[in-house]
Nucleic acid binder design. Sequence first.
DNA 1: TCGATGACCCAAC
DNA 2: CGTTGGGCCATCG
Length: 116
Amino acid sequence: MKGSSVESKTIKPDSVAEPNKDQKIWLVVMAIPAGKVASYGQVAAMAGLGRQARYIGRALGKLPQGHSVPWYRVIRSNGQIAFAPGSETYQEQVSCLQEEGVEVINGRVSMSQFGW
DNA sequence: TCGATGACCCAAC
DNA sequence: CGTTGGGCCATCG
């Protein structure tokens, strides 16, 4: 077995993005109570990413199956949906939000739902 | 290494 | 309220 050496050089980068960061984001998103929403920037700051608000979207896009992450509770800072109206993702997001008790008007959510 | 992209954010007009 | 332009920063070709 060629053993003798595990080395593997530098800690083996998981390549293709570290799931570590994504998981942290998912945890933060899961911490959002029902009936409230959070903006990407807000989640990014909470996850310790700072201004990487854009990374949130990417992490959510990598969501695996069987996840319990209410990604639909994450919207833009101006209270608007992050997807184009009419999109499948958009409709699903609005649908879920309404069930939580969030009022979605014209693809927009009341700012009162933020302070959670 | 550089250039282009992105489920963003903000200010100005 | 809509559009424009700039900024931020990680990821990919």
